[in-house]
Design a binder for these strands. Structure first.
Length: 231
DNA sequence: ACCCAGGTGGCCC
DNA sequence: GGGCCACATGGG
């Protein structure tokens, strides 16, 4: 019930987010893998390297030497493991779908999600990002911001990925464009406003946000981290 | 000198 | 099923 209202507020405040920035389906997939726990700025640098060297292509990544690929994706961080993950994906694509994204994307969305999850290095968020932003099928993407923000809002009790995903999908029409925009707006809010401190005065969700609860959560999270760090 | 970023898998209990 | 950890670059 609240999910639609929050979307409206975010959209009114921030407008179209123009996600995903990738030019091709494959570029979206590469971006989805490289952006794991990395800033998009760093991912852009890595993708730029791939483009400059004309490597941003399924078959070329399939054939390229791992060491070479590692060098190119280095700016995105975790570069050895991410190079391996890109290889894992294209290996999967060529061995099971003749290297054809078109064939892969013919799968029904839940089936597509399932096979993507079978690739080592593609977890739930990456799989959903690929289903939604590359294959254009309505699979709501959940990330750390989504769980943090909606828990603080009191809209969510559950923090488990699949349950959170179901909560969004059961409250919204199955609309690819809406799912794309909503996730992008949540990330925008998380990055710019709800990051380290709840700036409720500037937040488009003011009035829905329990300020005290938010503050308490922050304090708890901080002290828990500090406790760990100083031990 | 910290902290954080559009996570994931492996290992342990 | 949950808690920890490694993975690594670039920016605040």
């Amino acid at each position: 019930m609240k999910f639609a209202e929050i979307y409206e507020r975010l959209f009114d405040e921030f407008g179209e987010q123009h996600w995903w920035p990738g030019e091709t389906e494959f570029e979206v997939i590469v971006g989805a893998i490289l952006t794991q726990q990395a800033s998009w700025k760093n991912v852009e640098a890595a993708i730029k390297n791939l483009k400059k060297n004309k490597v941003l292509d399924e078959r070329i990544i399939y054939n390229i030497e791992l060491k070479k690929l590692e060098e190119l994706v280095k700016p995105s961080g975790f570069y050895r493991i991410k190079a391996k993950r890109l290889k894992n994906f294209v290996n999967f694509l060529f061995e099971k779908y003749d290297g054809s994204l078109e064939k892969l994307f013919k799968l029904e969305k839940n089936e597509l999600r399932k096979v993507l999850l079978s690739v080592n290095g593609i977890g739930k968020e990456t799989a959903d990002s690929i289903v939604l932003y590359a294959a254009n099928k309505p699979s709501f993407v959940i990330d750390a911001y989504t769980i943090r923000i909606f828990t603080r809002l009191g809209v969510l009790k559950e923090k488990e990925y699949d349950k959170v995903k179901a909560a969004f999908e059961n409250s919204l029409p199955q609309d690819v464009q809406l799912y794309k925009e909503y996730h992008a707006l949540i990330v925008h809010l998380g990055k710019n406003i709800c990051k380290t401190k709840p700036l409720c005065g500037m937040c488009p969700l003011k009035g829905m946000c329990e300020y005290a609860a938010v503050n308490n959560n922050h304090t708890k999270e901080k002290s828990k981290r500090n406790e760990k760090r100083f031990k």
